[in-house]
Design a protein around this nucleic acid. Sequence first.
RNA 1: UUUGCUACUUCCAGGA
Length: 384
Amino acid sequence: ERSYFRLIRSHKLSGDLHKCVEVFNLMVSAGLQWKEQTGCTMVEVYGKLGQIEEAESIFQDMRNRGGYPDVVSCNTMLNVYAQAGMPEQADQLFQQMAAKGVTLPDTQSYTIVMKAYGKAGRSRESMVLFQAMREEGLELDEVSYNTVINVCGGEMPAMEAVRLIREMQENGYSPSMVTRNAILSVVAKSGRMEDVQELFEDFTEQGSVDGYSFSIVVDAFGKRRQLEKMEATISAAAAARISSVEMYNAAIDAYGKAGLFGTMENGLMRLQSVGLHPNAVSFNSIIHSYGTCGMLTEMEEAFERLRVAGLKPDIYTFNTLIAAYGDADMPHASVQVLRQMHEEGIFPDEVTYNSLISAFEKAGDFLEAARWSLWKNQAGFSSK
RNA sequence: UUUGCUACUUCCAGGA
């Protein structure tokens, strides 16, 4: 058991999730009974693969074996729901933990459920949990504060935000880099670019900016199509020798969405010229940009370039292609992409089904659209 | 080193 666990863990660390599943299946078919640690790791692995049902089934096995899963396993399952954008399921498990009294939720449990609601745009529920957390007398650590800033910061009146930061400091957490970046990100999402600039300048003077800070600002300028300011920020990052793939990806996406394909491609070159390597996100942006304006040849070439770069397409890549062919009134090409996706071991998610349904609707094939809608439901996704 | 926080990409919706 132990050596299987170690093998699974090392595959997980190197990011090869399919290998984890392989080893786990081997272990099961060898008749070995896995321990909670192993189960917990597999819950996380299946979650990252988007196979929520598998994760649930492992977790359920843990329950069936008598003793309730410990708080770590529960938190892992909660986090799978959070990542998958399933706040109700997370909350349900959370309630069960509290009700049964065997595995009381801890600070992390609360934090994860707050994040789950936050991701779903339901910051009100997150605030309620935050209050509950204080009433329970639970310790609020830096991560939980940062999470609150991230999910509720945008909705909070300025005064309340200031109070939160002060409370954080009183509890012994002076704003860390993560906290500063979370604030920067919240302000950036609100679209107040003058404030973003001012904050960023302050942070820069204080010498507390990192790769996250730069990409947050580059992305914010890019999304608002303030391309010259975006470029100035990229130059500043280069001068400070703090460049990241994410920063360049944000620029590539901005140029692509602005229809400036030459500059977009140039962004990919620049990324490489500073010694960075593009990732799937880089190509996904490019594929999307060509796809949405009907440049299907260029799109397919970009898909090919992704592989030539030694990268693997992910769920975003496939969903983007499916949507692009749908847009181009080629729903059967979309289905072809789905097959390819399946062959590569990637499971369709809700977006995949939505795109296929739209593809057939757009082509006027409502019967086929209805069938995909049915299949979507059968796969456990609710109707649109 | 079995779990949680800040940056980039897909459908839909929303917001301006």
